[in-house]
Design a protein around this nucleic acid. Structure first.
Length: 639
RNA sequence: GCCGCCUUAGCUCAGGGGUAGAGCAACUGAUUCGUAAUCAGUAGGUCCGCGGUUCGAAUCCGCGAGGCGGCACCA
């Protein structure tokens, strides 16, 4: 007797082992048809797998989020079958479900072309139409290795060999095609449906290791129905429209060119936003008792040798030679900050010492890693190093987390996630020190009210770290802020202070940034607001547009008044129709258009039109000026 | 760095072994108009670079650069 408890609380009894499909049939034919898999005591399994003991079972259909993952995994298998039918001799490797879709990595001499994607997709539809039953088999390891080796699937054989000897090898067969896979899978290929699309071709290293051969990866997206697929494709189009590289050009914010690969040419408008952002951060740091410094951009190699960077990151540093000395463009500010710390004698009374710098750093990133503003070779961080005692780690971390959260909120990001990276296998410092540092970081993060997830073993070799990830308007995650506890660098570069006891001690150094780099954050900001900057950041905050030349003098007066109030305004007295002007300034995403015609000039008013709206508000000039001035105050300066 | 694709006017893109195309933008002129494109005209090109094939290359082939999509990397 097997008792099956269902999600509605009911219990059904069967006289022996029973499959999920039987249970579904028992409930109703409609459900049996829609069933894709079952969860047994919370674990997803095949619909055809016998359930031997009492269990809590729930039947999964396309409506369940978990079933979608299954569907995507099956899409990967169907794609692999299609590829092997169309291109004999191609080897399969791995093909998991991923967010929004799936991929499969193939080994094949000849590259796939974009045209091939269409052919593969058509064959996939055909395989779905064949509605091949998907049958699970359990093989012995040796048999599996032997089989895959015999048909020339050396990657699969290698995979099986790396599975622990105690585990069964599961084979899923659909028609005359089969693959080794952990499962579970759909009952038949027909259940996959045809709401998938192959998206892109890419290279990917075997087992993610750049020393291994490169395979050909095909990415696809798959959904439960037509509407979901269409929504996803629409979302991608929307994301493309707010791509910071596209908006950067359309809005005349910045450009990149090959003579300065990975370095940004900021245009007046982009630089205006950049400055507004930097000034904002500078005020926030001042308010949080940081001191700002500035240190050399090029420093002799000997300093990098002492800090350990020369040994570890030499390849990624830009080098210059002068008078038989080798200088390196600084890839980071911290060694220089320690030089300032070391000047004179520091007392415990000087700690915590929070030293900030907006210093230009250069790193020779791999050419393939460069990506618009998001990954560049020349950048400025909102960087600071907090020199403190071990006892001050908690309070400093807590204060930092609070500052970070507040900054993100001001900039329009409310969702912040934290990744906590603890001790790696290879590390410096004693276990006792690590215990202390990790506990302090955790305590402080909790106290700051931030939810964190563990990133085991991913800490820096010199200490544990926090990574702050924020989510943008269209649901993408960006890692921006960081806080790293460092016991090593102060030691290597000889930083010390005199303690209460009169002895010399090593300070702990907290490396921290909120935005990360200004370049990258500008990119994130542009994409998050789709180019429609909040008023305090907008490069042009208001444009005064005339209807006829009769209002030119008055428009000039309005324009000067705006400037006098510190508002970034432009004047548009061109002989164009107001429709034309409104459209042009709207496309340029200017937040406020002040329209003035004969009537406004006579009455000393302005008609305000805001970006995205189509209503006009007529205000007395003095009121309009006050309103706009108030609205353009940066968030940290608001009463 | 690795794999694939792409590179034509300021921008978006079409074309394609025989004198280089469109829309928008720019410029000139006309138009003075009430909230998302007024009309007409003019000008604009090393078809990414270098080499090869050819009577002839922007087009075909090779090499290189940059960009794009991934992978690897990210102190």
């Amino acid at each position: 007797m097997v008792a099956i408890s269902l999600p509605d609380g009911s219990v059904r009894e069967f006289d022996g082992p029973v499959t999920g499909l039987r249970i579904a049939e028992d409930i109703g034919p409609g459900l049996a048809k829609a069933a894709l898999a079952v969860t047994v005591d919370g674990t997803m399994v095949d619909l055809t797998l016998p359930i031997e003991a009492d269990a809590e079972v729930s039947i999964l259909t396309a409506k369940d989020e978990a079933a979608l993952e299954l569907l995507r995994h099956d899409a990967a298998h169907v794609m692999a079958q299609a590829v092997q039918e169309l291109y004999p001799g191609t080897q399969v490797t791995i093909g998991p479900a991923i967010e929004n879709g799936f991929y499969y990595d193939f080994a094949r001499e000849e590259p796939f072309t974009p045209d091939d994607l269409g052919k593969i997709e058509a064959r996939m539809v055909e395989i779905v139409k064949r509605d091949l039953p998907i049958v699970r088999e359990v093989w012995g390891r040796d048999r599996a290795v032997e089989y895959f080796t015999s048909i020339g699937e050396s990657y699969k054989a290698e995979l099986i060999e790396s599975i622990p000897g105690t585990e069964d090898i599961k084979i899923y067969r659909q028609g005359d095609w089969l693959d080794m896979c952990r499962g579970p899978h759909l009952p038949s290929t027909g259940k996959l449906g045809v709401h998938f699309k192959l998206m892109k071709l890419a290279g990917a290293y075997w087992r993610g290791d750049s020393r291994n051969p490169m395979l050909q990866r095909i990415y696809g997206t798959a959904w439960a129905d037509k509407k979901q697929l269409a929504n996803y494709l629409t979302m991608l189009e929307e994301a493309e429209k707010r791509d910071h590289r596209r908006l950067g050009q359309e809005m005349d914010l910045f450009h990149l060119q090959e003579e300065a690969q990975g370095a940004v040419f900021w245009h007046p408008k982009g630089w205006t936003v950049y400055r507004a952002l930097q000034n904002y951060i500078r005020r926030r740091l001042d308010a949080a008792d940081y001191v700002e410094v500035n240190t050399p951009m090029m420093v002799d190699r000997s300093l990098w040798e002492k800090s350990g960077h020369w040994e570890k990151f030499r390849e990624h540093m830009f080098i210059s030679e002068a008078e038989e000395k080798i200088l390196a463009m600084k890839p980071m500010n911290c060694p220089c900050h320690i030089q300032i710390f070391r000047q004179g004698i520091k007392s415990y009374r000087d700690l915590p010492l929070r030293m900030a710098e907006f210093g230009a750093c250069h790193r020779n990133e791999a050419s393939g890693a460069l990506h618009g503003l998001m990954r560049v070779r020349a950048f400025v961080q909102d960087d600071a190093h907090i020199f403190c005692t071990e006892d001050q780690i908690v309070s400093e971390t807590q204060a930092f987390c609070a500052l970070l959260k507040s900054v993100y909120k001001d900039l329009g990001f409310d969702e912040v996630k934290v990744k906590f990276s603890d001790r790696p296998d290879v590390r410096a410092g004693s276990d006792a020190t690590w215990d202390k540092a990790e506990a302090a970081l955790k305590e402080a993060t909790d106290a700051a009210g931030l939810a964190w997830t563990l990133n085991p073993g991913e800490g820096a070799f010199y200490g544990p770290k926090l990574e702050f990830v924020l989510r943008d308007a269209i649901g993408r995650d960006w890692q921006c802020g960081t806080l790293q506890v460092d016991f090593v660098l102060p030691d290597r570069l000889g930083a010390d202070y005199v303690g209460e006891d009169g002895d010399k001690h090593r300070p702990v150094m907290l490396h921290r940034a909120i935005l990360g780099t200004f370049e990258r954050f500008m990119g994130i900001l542009i994409e998050n607001c789709a180019g429609k900057f909040p008023l305090w950041l907008a490069p042009v905050q208001a444009v005064v547009s005339t209807i006829t030349s009769d209002a030119d003098n008055y428009a000039q007066e309005v324009f000067q008044a705006l400037k006098a109030k510190g508002i970034r305004a432009t004047l548009d007295v061109r002989n164009e129709k107001i429709n034309y002007k409104v459209r042009e300034h709207s496309v340029a995403k200017v937040p406020v258009i002040l329209v003035v015609g004969k009537k406004e000039a006579e009455e000393n008013t302005v008609a305000i039109r805001r970006l995205g709206g189509n209503v006009q508000e007529v205000l007395a000039l003095a009121d309009a000026l006050d309103t706009l001035q108030l609205e353009s105050v940066p968030p940290d300066l608001r009463g």
